[in-house]
């Protein structure tokens, strides 16, 4: 009994527990509604699309932990691949143009950081503006038309989303990104600074941590990861869509929060962001299999978001009593 309690405690202490419980429940429900949900075929489907949201969510989570938002990720998600394909069409080297597009994404992140931290405009508003500006620019430079894939980019496509066994390369990239950022967050000095800056910027500053530096780095990382996610989707679809990533910023915030991140900053985990991502992707996919109209997606994500949060709060209160 005693050891059981210790184990129970250890499990309940995990910040990801609410999201994890919801994920398990969701998978179970969809499996009961329609058994093919857990077929190899369908699992492959989910694994194929999850990284496109997940990589972006990793960044959004990190930024949220350090106390800021980025609503422009959906627009960067569209802009980065568009820059990439336009430069390729201009005759640029495929890889060089991809690197340039990712650097441009980093630049947008840096701009978000400057507007938020130097001009002291709350990031929610600053990046809402950025979201509109960059989406508008995407539409302006494409006239709203998608760009088709070009054969010349096939080798790069293989690296980004080529098939290996039942999965695509994008899943491996996602795994690596999760690993790297887990280490940075949990096992590096910078990770400790992120938690302190998001949790109590005054304390962090008094202890010699520079909040603006930490936040700026995270703005850049977030934008970079948004651009990379965008590239991965564009190459998987073999189409560069000006409308890609519309509404993605809110899915990303939902995934982060379901995974245990706090809108107030200072709290969150990388593993939690993975749970949130898979939860959202499972809902999306499960509803289709269940034959529900696509509109149900938003309804379910909304419900799951609120329930996961409520679950986290309840567990937190329980844990508090157990200590």
């Amino acid at each position: 009994m005693g050891t059981l309690k210790v184990y129970l405690k250890r499990v309940l202490f995990l910040k990801e527990i609410g999201g994890l419980a919801m994920l398990t429940a969701t998978i179970l429900v969809f499996y009961l509604i329609s058994a093919p949900f857990l077929s190899i075929e369908n699992i492959r489907n989910i694994l194929e699309i999850a990284p496109e949201l997940g990589i972006l969510v990793t960044g959004v989570t990190l930024l949220m932990i350090s106390g800021e938002f980025d609503l422009s990720v959906g627009s960067v998600f569209a802009l980065c691949p568009i820059i990439n394909i336009m430069l390729i069409n201009c005759g640029w080297n495929v890889y060089l143009s991809a690197i340039f597009a990712l650097l441009a994404s980093c630049g947008i992140g840096a701009l978000n950081a400057i507007v938020t931290l130097k001009l002291r405009i709350p990031s929610f508003v600053a990046t809402l503006g950025a979201m509109m500006v960059w989406r508008g620019i995407v539409l302006l430079i494409t006239n709203g038309w998608p760009f088709p894939f070009v054969e010349r980019a096939a080798p790069f496509e293989k690296i980004l989303v080529g098939k290996v066994g039942i999965i695509r390369f994008s899943l491996i990239w996602y795994g690596l990104i999760v690993l790297v950022f887990w280490i940075i967050l949990e096992r590096s000095r910078f990770g400790n600074w992120m938690f302190s800056v998001g949790g109590n910027p005054k304390a962090a500053r008094a202890l010699g941590v520079n909040p603006n530096m930490v936040k700026a780095v995270n703005f850049v990382i977030t934008s970079f990861l948004a651009g990379l996610s965008g590239l991965i989707q564009a190459y998987r679809l073999e189409a560069f869509l000006p409308s890609a990533g519309v509404g993605l910023e809110l899915d990303a915030i939902a995934a982060s929060v379901i995974g245990g991140a706090s809108l107030a900053g200072g709290v969150g985990t990388v593993i939690g962001s993975v749970t949130g991502t898979f939860l959202i992707r499972s809902i999306d996919n499960g509803l289709v299999l269940a034959g529900a109209p696509g509109y149900w997606f938003r309804v379910f994500v909304g419900i799951v978001l609120v329930v996961a949060l409520a679950l986290n709060k309840t567990i937190e209160a329980k844990v508090h009593k157990m200590r």
């Binding site: 000095r189 400790n192 938690f195 302190s196 949790g199 005054k202 304390a203 962090a204 008094a206 202890l207």
Partner: peptide, 21 residues
């Protein structure tokens, strides 16, 4: 500082080493 000595959400251990990990 009055309100700015510790970060509430961080563990005691991590708090002690903020900035000097």
């Amino acid at each position: 500082h009055q309100e700015a000595a510790l970060v509430d959400k961080m563990s005691i251990m991590r708090n002690i080493f903020i900035g000097r990990e």
